[in-house]
Amino acid sequence: MRTRTEHDRPTPAPPLPDLLAEWVTAGLISPDQARAVGEHEARRATAPGGPAPGGPVPGPPAEGSLVVEALGYLGGIIMLVGALLLGSLFWADLPTGVRLLLIALAACALVAAGVAVPERLGDAAARLRSVLWALAVAATGAFMVVFTSDVLDRQDESSLLVVGPCTAAVAAVLWWRRPTWLQQLALLVPVVLTAIGVGFQIGGTDSSWPGGMVWIAATVWAAAAWAGWLRPRVTGVPLGGLVATFGGLSIDNDLGIALALGTAVALVVLALYERSLPWLGVAAVAVLQSTPRAAVAWFPGRLSAALTLIVTGGLLVAAAVWVARHQGGPTALSEPGRPRNGTGGRPEGRPPVRD
């Protein structure tokens, strides 16, 4: 009979703290998630009848999570429809103070509901919390609109300088607590509104300033996401680039066209550098929005416009094929910003950015 040797024995799994540290380093989970997992496992190990150390860890009940998530969305939609019906019946007759109180209560209730979502639901909890907190940001914006129009009596573009920053402050706190893509989007919207308000204040009747300020704000946003300051990086860069492209297109002169086209090209370059098809898809939208405008303005005539679109489309197809062929190789990225070739695709000595 063959006896078991040392080589036949299964390799023991590393301790949980080492695994968590490795996962955080690899960018699979965030430090907060690692801390939560460690605390949860510590409680399970010390609880009566808990699993033995190193034993199998059952995952969350997927079906229960999906049911809770679906009920949460359905309940939120029903409440929203009911609130809209109630508002259409009595909103005009309510005093301003009562309107503000109702909106503030709705915003606070949405934030509290997001906090109350249990962590044990896993990804479903994260999605449900993101939706609730995004709605809370929208309610905050509605509160500020009513406040500026009915209390401050500011109903022109200057109201954006109140609505935008105040809403962005609430959105920034929620994004800081849970930096998901939806919280990031909820923060970007009031930032753009603030930039538009600043543009109107600076330019007055000059319609180029709002678009220019949007382009500046969105470009800074994309750069901050690229540097890892605005998580998740994988959505921050393309969101900022796409908004910057539309901001440039809203400037009614050649400078705006150049800014939009340059931003679109920069997005394509970044997508190729990161070998990311999602980024390339967003870049394609930016290119398809800016290239026809540039072709019509700089190369008048049907033939030149048609040739410009054909060349642009061909380049996008070639870029997509290149990314697809190199994405699965040994140096490919599973996600933009993830390490490749052991250095994260960045110069030696620069630490990898964690989303």
Rank of each mutant, 00 (worst) to 15 (best):
residue 2 R to V: 13
residue 5 T to E: 08
residue 5 T to F: 05
residue 6 E to A: 03
residue 6 E to K: 05
residue 7 H to F: 08
residue 8 D to Q: 12
residue 9 R to H: 14
residue 11 T to G: 10
residue 16 L to I: 05
residue 16 L to E: 00
residue 16 L to P: 00
residue 17 P to H: 12
residue 22 E to I: 12
residue 23 W to F: 12
residue 24 V to H: 07
residue 25 T to A: 11
residue 27 G to V: 11
residue 30 S to F: 06
residue 34 A to Y: 14
residue 35 R to I: 09
residue 37 V to S: 01
residue 40 H to N: 10
residue 41 E to M: 10
residue 41 E to N: 11
residue 47 A to Q: 09
residue 48 P to F: 10
residue 51 P to N: 14
residue 55 G to F: 12
residue 57 V to Y: 14
residue 57 V to Q: 15
residue 61 P to A: 12
residue 62 A to L: 14
residue 65 S to K: 06
residue 65 S to A: 15
residue 69 E to K: 15
residue 69 E to S: 15
residue 70 A to Y: 09
residue 71 L to A: 08
residue 77 I to D: 11
residue 82 G to T: 09
residue 83 A to H: 06
residue 83 A to N: 03
residue 84 L to R: 02
residue 86 L to G: 01
residue 87 G to I: 00
residue 89 L to M: 13
residue 92 A to W: 12
residue 92 A to I: 09
residue 93 D to S: 13
residue 93 D to N: 13
residue 94 L to I: 14
residue 95 P to Q: 10
residue 96 T to R: 15
residue 105 L to R: 08
residue 108 C to V: 14
residue 111 V to K: 01
residue 112 A to F: 14
residue 114 G to Q: 04
residue 116 A to E: 08
residue 117 V to M: 08
residue 118 P to R: 06
residue 120 R to W: 09
residue 121 L to S: 00
residue 122 G to Y: 07
residue 122 G to A: 10
residue 123 D to C: 11
residue 126 A to F: 09
residue 128 L to V: 02
residue 135 L to W: 07
residue 136 A to P: 00
residue 139 A to H: 04
residue 148 T to Q: 09
residue 153 D to A: 15
residue 159 S to P: 08
residue 167 T to W: 08
residue 168 A to L: 13
residue 170 V to R: 02
residue 170 V to N: 01
residue 171 A to I: 03
residue 171 A to K: 00
residue 172 A to D: 03
residue 175 W to S: 02
residue 180 T to W: 07
residue 181 W to L: 11
residue 182 L to C: 06
residue 185 L to Q: 02
residue 186 A to M: 09
residue 188 L to V: 11
residue 190 P to F: 05
residue 191 V to M: 08
residue 191 V to I: 13
residue 192 V to C: 07
residue 200 F to N: 05
residue 208 S to F: 10
residue 211 G to T: 07
residue 218 A to W: 00
residue 219 T to M: 04
residue 224 A to Q: 10
residue 224 A to H: 13
residue 226 W to M: 11
residue 227 A to V: 14
residue 235 T to P: 03
residue 237 V to E: 01
residue 241 G to L: 05
residue 242 L to Y: 00
residue 245 T to S: 06
residue 249 L to W: 01
residue 250 S to R: 06
residue 250 S to A: 14
residue 251 I to M: 07
residue 253 N to S: 10
residue 255 L to R: 09
residue 259 L to W: 03
residue 260 A to T: 01
residue 266 A to C: 12
residue 267 L to H: 06
residue 270 L to S: 02
residue 273 Y to I: 13
residue 275 R to L: 09
residue 276 S to H: 03
residue 276 S to A: 12
residue 285 V to T: 09
residue 289 Q to M: 13
residue 290 S to H: 02
residue 293 R to F: 04
residue 294 A to H: 04
residue 298 W to S: 06
residue 299 F to Y: 15
residue 303 L to A: 12
residue 303 L to M: 11
residue 306 A to W: 15
residue 307 L to G: 03
residue 309 L to E: 07
residue 310 I to D: 10
residue 316 L to Q: 04
residue 318 A to G: 11
residue 318 A to M: 09
residue 319 A to Y: 05
residue 320 A to I: 03
residue 321 V to D: 05
residue 323 V to S: 00
residue 324 A to L: 06
residue 329 G to S: 11
residue 331 T to R: 12
residue 334 S to L: 10
residue 338 R to L: 02
residue 341 N to Y: 08
residue 341 N to L: 10
residue 347 P to L: 11
residue 352 P to Q: 00
